[in-house]
């Protein structure tokens, strides 16, 4: 090892030797070179002394603290804090494991868009009203002529009166009796109520029975009403008034049944659709 021509490999070795960071073989190589050359020995020894001087340098005391203030890095802080908020998970993502099934069911029902959920509830109430109205219609078709039931109960009378008029006209044409025809339908009805065995009355009954079989069981009382044999004179008059009232309400009676039927279907659909929409809107909101 010639110190005048130290190559990079030798520089590495000398530095490591001075620091005591060499293997046994490397140390022997350097010490052999030092023994062979005074210049090498001088080089290594002076370097070791220089290192000792440098290592004896006292540590530098800290003049002040170098902690950062908010103002020095305000822009970076703002950016990182906003990113941290965005990346933070929403607090209601994880379901509480201690919830009972009933609590989860209630939360499921209460979830969804409030306006649409209220609309679905309103449709459900209307549906209930329609069911109650239909139930009343079936149970009390001849109730007092006020409100829905009165209008509905008049429905079966319409075909009866119309058929009576037709029957009267036909009987008039067939038998040639004077006073019969469309213009005397009120009288024919009166006769039908009081005298069972007259031909026109029989025609009314037959027509009424035909209509009953077509319209359903709710028309049975209508057919039975005119044939009460023990009916006193005031009762007969009452029945006549009912028929008269039924005659006036006849055109709007039958459509109410259809209206309720369609209303029932529509309201069921509305409840389902509105509730599903409320859930879907909430799902989009979360997403």
């Amino acid at each position: 090892m010639d110190p005048q021509n130290l190559n990079s490999v030798d520089e590495d070795l000398v530095a490591a030797y001075v620091d005591g960071d060499v293997s046994t073989e490397e140390r022997q190589r350097v010490e052999a070179a030092m023994a062979a050359s005074e210049q090498v020995a001088w080089e290594v020894n002076t370097l070791r002394q220089t290192v000792q001087l440098l290592q004896d340098m006292p540590p530098v005391p800290l003049p002040r603290s170098f902690t950062l203030t908010e103002d020095q890095v305000a822009d970076v802080l703002q950016e990182r804090r906003s990113l941290a908020k965005v990346e933070a998970p929403p607090p209601r993502q994880v379901e509480d494991p201690e919830d009972t099934a009933w609590q989860r069911f209630l939360r499921f029902l209460n979830g969804g868009d409030l306006a649409l959920r209220n609309a679905a509830a309103l449709a459900a109430v209307l549906l209930l009203v329609v069911f109650v109205a239909e139930f009343q219609l079936q149970r009390n078709p001849f109730g007092p002529p006020t409100g829905e039931s009165a209008q509905i109960s008049s429905a079966p009378s319409a075909p009866q009166a119309q058929v009576t008029a037709v029957g009267g006209a036909l009987s008039g044409q067939v038998s040639g009796q004077p006073g019969s025809g469309a213009g005397s339908s009120q009288e024919t009805a009166d006769e039908g109520a009081g005298q069972e065995d007259d031909e026109p009355v029989f025609g009314v009954m037959a027509a009424g029975e035909e209509e009953q079989s077509a319209a359903g069981s709710e028309q049975e009382p209508v057919a039975a009403a005119p044939v009460q044999p023990e009916t006193s004179s005031p009762a007969v008059e009452s029945s006549q008034r009912q028929l008269t009232a039924s005659e006036s309400a006849a055109p709007s009676g039958q459509p109410w049944v259809t209206v309720f039927r369609y209303a029932r279907i529509l309201l069921v659909l509305a409840v389902i659709v509105l509730w599903l929409l409320s859930r879907a809107r909430t799902g989009r909101g979360r997403a």
Binding site: E11, D12, A15, A16, V18, E43, L47, Q49, T50, L54
Partner: peptide, 12 residues
Amino acid sequence: KSRINRARGRVR
């Protein structure tokens, strides 16, 4: 290591 050795020599 080379830089350290050269630096020590220059300081010396």
